[in-house]
C-alpha cells in the first residue's frame, strides 16, 4: 500500500468554521457600523437630500450645511464650550486625585486596602439620578448650582473609581525595582516618581484620562439635573431633541458620537492591556 486514504473531513470542517467565524465577525461589525455610517451620512448631507425619497445610501451630496445649521442654532455653541470645559476640568481634577490614589493602591500595603477598593465602586453603584438630586440641593445652598463647576464635581466623582483603578493597574505594570534603582542613583521619592515612574505610566494614564473625558462628554442625566442655562452638549441636545428638525437631530448625534470614535481609535491598544492586568 503506497498511500493510505486520508480522512480530510476534519480539515474541511476547520475551514468551514473559519469562514463562519469571519462571517459572524463581519455581521457584528456591520451591526455596530451601519448606524454610525447612517448618522454620519445624514449629518454630512444637505438638508434637501435628507428629505428626498428614496434616501441615498451613498454620499452623493456631501455638504457641511446641516452641521453648520446645528452648530449655528441657539445654545449649541455655548453647550459645546461647556462640554469642553466640563470634560477637561473633569479630566484634570480626576487625574489630580485619582493618579496619586492609584499609585498608593499599587505600591503600598495599608490597613483597609481591600474595603477601600470595594467602596470605590460604590459611587458607581448608585444611579446618577439618586446622586444628582441631593447634589443639586447641596449645590443650590453653596451657590454653585447651574455652573460648570457643579458638573465637573459630579463627573469627577463618577470618573474617580475608574481613574483610580486604571491608574493602579498601570502603576502595577511599572516594576518596583526600576523605581528603587532611581532612588539608589540619587533621586528623592518624588524625583523617582517624576523621572521614572510617571514617564513609564504616562501612556496608561493618558488612556485613563481620555476614558474620563469621554465619560464626561457622554454623561447626560446628571448634567441636565445640575444645570439650567449652562448645559453640556448632550444635555442641550436631549432637551431640544423633541422639538427640533430632523437635520438637527442627525447633526447632534454625529457631534456626540465623534469623540467616542476618536477615543476608541486612540485607546484600542491600551484598553486590552488595561483589563488584561489584575489589581492585587
Amino acid at each position: 500500500m503506497s498511500q493510505a486514504t486520508v480522512d480530510t473531513a476534519p480539515l474541511k470542517r476547520q475551514k468551514r468554521n473559519r469562514v463562519l467565524l469571519q462571517l459572524t465577525c463581519i455581521a457584528v461589525s456591520l451591526f455596530m457600523l451601519i448606524p454610525i455610517y447612517l448618522i454620519s451620512l445624514a449629518a454630512l448631507s444637505s438638508r434637501e437630500s435628507l428629505n428626498a425619497f428614496p434616501l441615498s445610501l451613498l454620499p452623493t451630496s456631501f455638504s457641511f450645511e446641516t452641521l453648520n445649521a446645528f452648530l449655528g442654532s441657539t445654545g449649541v455653541f455655548g453647550a459645546l464650550g461647556n462640554s469642553l470645559i466640563v470634560g477637561v476640568g473633569t479630566l484634570l481634577l480626576s487625574a489630580l486625585i485619582g493618579v496619586p490614589a492609584g499609585y498608593a493602591l499599587a505600591r503600598f500595603a495599608f490597613p483597609g486596602k481591600e474595603p477601600y477598593q470595594l467602596f470605590l465602586l460604590f459611587a458607581r453603584a448608585l444611579p446618577i439620578v439618586v446622586l444628582s438630586v441631593p447634589l443639586a440641593r447641596l449645590f443650590l445652598t453653596v451657590d454653585i448650582y447651574d455652573t460648570t463647576y457643579a458638573v465637573i464635581l459630579l463627573h469627577t466623582a463618577l470618573a474617580l473609581p475608574t481613574t483610580i483603578l486604571i491608574s493602579a493597574s498601570v502603576f502595577l505594570g511599572v516594576p518596583h525595582d526600576v523605581e528603587e534603582a532611581a532612588r539608589v542613583f540619587g533621586c528623592s521619592p518624588f524625583g523617582a516618581f517624576m523621572r521614572v515612574v510617571m514617564p513609564m505610566a504616562l501612556p496608561g494614564i493618558a488612556a485613563a484620562s481620555i476614558f474620563t473625558f469621554v465619560m464626561s462628554w457622554n454623561e447626560v442625566l446628571g448634567a441636565s439635573i445640575l444645570t439650567l442655562d449652562h448645559r453640556t452638549l448632550p444635555a442641550q441636545v436631549l432637551t431640544s431633541l423633541a422639538d427640533s428638525p430632523l437635520a438637527y437631530r442627525f447633526a447632534g448625534g454625529f457631534a456626540l458620537v465623534i469623540p467616542s470614535i476618536i477615543f476608541i481609535a486612540f485607546m484600542r491598544r491600551y484598553l486590552t492591556n488595561m483589563w488584561g492586568s489584575t489589581i492585587r
Binding site: 525595582d177 534603582a181 539608589v184 540619587g186 524625583g191
Partner: peptide, 30 residues
Amino acid sequence: LPPNKRNISMVFQSYAVFPHRSVRYNIGFG
C-alpha cells in the same frame, strides 16, 4: 538614611534599567 543620601551604587537582579530612555541616558543617570 534614604538611598539617595548614602552614596551607594547597585546592580539589580532584574537589571532595572529605565526602559523609556536610551542606553546612554541609563548609564549616565547617576
